[in-house]
Amino acid sequence: MEREKRYSAMTEYELRREIATLNEKARKAEQMGMVNEYAVLERKAVMAKAYLLDPNSFKPGEIYEIDGDPGSYFKIDYLNGVFAWGYRLGGTGQEEALPISMLNLKG
């Protein structure tokens, strides 16, 4: 049995292919009403997308809108790999980690 390759070890091409495959599987799961499967596949795609981004594009102390959650913002305290650690504005103030692919870069 072939072990799955970690996203961190994949090339850009492999990551893009993986994201396309996950999106297709998620679409099929959604059509079949498999809500939990859909959520898992969507989360995997978000993680894979994080490895296509440059963590240096995200700065501690900055505030970013959370993708897929309009009006929700996240302030980064620090970065660890492809995860931004910080807290949601207007939230409980509890520290959490989000993949950087969930944060919208200011354009």
Rank of each mutant, 00 (worst) to 15 (best):
E65Y: 11
P60K: 03
I66S: 02
L105R: 03
I19L: 12
I63E: 01
Y7H: 09
I100E: 06
K59D: 04
V35Y: 12
E4N: 08
L89P: 08
Y73F: 12
I100F: 05
S8E: 06
G90M: 00
R27P: 01
N80T: 09
V46P: 01
V35R: 14
M102Q: 12
L98W: 09
Y38T: 08
G71H: 10
K25Y: 08
E62Q: 14
V40K: 02
R43C: 00
L52T: 03
Y38A: 07
T11R: 03
E62T: 10
N36Q: 15
V82K: 10
T92G: 01
M102W: 00
G93F: 00
K5D: 00
M10G: 06
E42G: 03
W85D: 13
K75L: 05
V40R: 14
L41G: 10
K5Y: 09
A39G: 06
N56F: 00
N23F: 13
L103I: 11
V46S: 09
S8G: 04
E37R: 11
L41S: 04
N80H: 05
N56S: 15
Y87N: 06
G91A: 01
P60T: 06
R16E: 15
V40W: 09
G68E: 07
E95P: 08
P60H: 07
N23V: 13
M102Y: 06
G68T: 13
L98I: 02
I66G: 00
K28R: 11
Y51S: 07
D69T: 09
L53K: 02
R16C: 06
K44H: 05
K75G: 00
G61H: 02
L103E: 02
L79F: 11
K28I: 11
A20T: 13
A97Y: 00
V82R: 08
S72G: 06
G90C: 04
M102I: 08
E14N: 03
T11D: 10
Q31H: 11
N104D: 12
E24Q: 14
A45H: 06
I63C: 06
Q94R: 12
R43M: 05
N104I: 09
K44E: 13
V46N: 13
Y78V: 07
A97D: 10
A84T: 00
A45G: 01
N80D: 13
M102L: 07
N36K: 14
K49N: 04
A26W: 01
Q94A: 01
S72C: 11
G61V: 00
E12I: 15
Q31D: 14
M47D: 10
M32Y: 10
L103G: 05
Y64D: 04
G81W: 06
E18F: 07
M34G: 01
A26C: 03
L105M: 04
A39C: 05
Y78T: 12
Q94G: 04
K49E: 06
R27K: 15
Y78R: 13
G68R: 10
R17H: 14
E37I: 12
E2P: 14
R43E: 14
R17V: 10
E14P: 04
F74K: 03
N23Y: 13
F83R: 10
R16P: 14
G33P: 02
L22H: 05
A48N: 02
R27D: 15
A45Y: 10
A50R: 03
E24A: 14
